[in-house]
Design a protein around this nucleic acid. Structure first.
Lengths: 139, 139
DNA sequence: TGCAAAATCATACTTTCGGGTGATTGCTGA
DNA sequence: TCAGCAATCACCCGAAAGTATGATTTTGCA
């Protein structure tokens, strides 16, 4: 990334110095204004594209980011606790294991799950996980 | 995408006309050459970045490719039929539904599943789906 | 302060899953 | 040709999951 920025800066500086060196007035009078502006614009659009590509490539390789769809969660009225249960279900835990992890009874876990099924409009835990993932509610 | 290109073209044209209209020479003499070039360069670098972002976003949304890990399938000795069952499980279907879809008895489905659990070294269908996805055995 | 959610738990009942065992058929490679 | 595997099915049992209903406590917000 630093390299990218460096190259970009150097290109910019280079352009300025080249213009100075070769008497920029000459260019301006020989070529039309439009053409002059065009050249700079095109060059730096290209540079911008290139820089953008470099940057996005790097950031995308470094971190494939997951952003939770909070709108969906709010819209479906899924509570904090329900979300916790959902995440554990997605990890393949049984109701018993979930209960132990959250320090509640198995009945509580089952209640949360029932509510989740209603809200997600599904019948089984596997479907709940599927749907939640497709809605970006869980990773 | 067309919109993006359109906006880019319009911006470019706009710059030219604005310069013409306001007597570009005035600007050039008032500001230094470096600054003038800088402004155009920065503007169009920004535009380039923006255009690049628009374009890459589109191409990336269009093609999220999935390539099945056949090596893993072979290594784990997962059969054709088992894979079919696995895919349906991942879609959240019950054993009964899977059996109906594959035109076999529920017992057959259960047998396939048992074998899958052994091969994937898991205990439950949710875990099987999890593991299979992490191994790129299924989408 | 008071109400509506949310969180908790219980009991009872049904359905689905998963494990174990065993059997038949058909294909394939040594 | 025979061993081995894949695919099919059956039966049984216990565990896990899911449904229904009802109750109590906590809590956030108007």
């Amino acid at each position: 990334m630093k390299k990218t920025i460096l190259i970009y800066g150097l290109s910019l500086a280079l352009l300025v110095f080249v213009l100075e060196y070769f008497e920029y007035r000459f260019f301006i009078r020989e070529l039309s204004t439009e053409l002059f502006v065009f050249m700079i614009a095109l060059t730096f659009t290209g540079l911008g594209l290139w820089v953008g590509k470099k940057l996005t490539n790097q950031t995308k390789i470094e971190s494939p980011p997951f952003e939770q769809n909070e709108k969906a969660i709010r819209y479906l009225r899924i509570s904090e606790r329900e979300l916790e249960v959902l995440e554990l279900v997605a990890q393949g835990l049984s109701n018993k294991q979930i209960s132990e992890k959250l320090f509640v009874s198995i009945n509580t876990t089952k209640t949360h799950l029932s509510h989740l099924y209603e809200k997600l409009e599904v019948k089984r835990r596997t479907q709940a996980v599927e749907k939640a993932k497709s809605l970006n509610i869980i990773e």
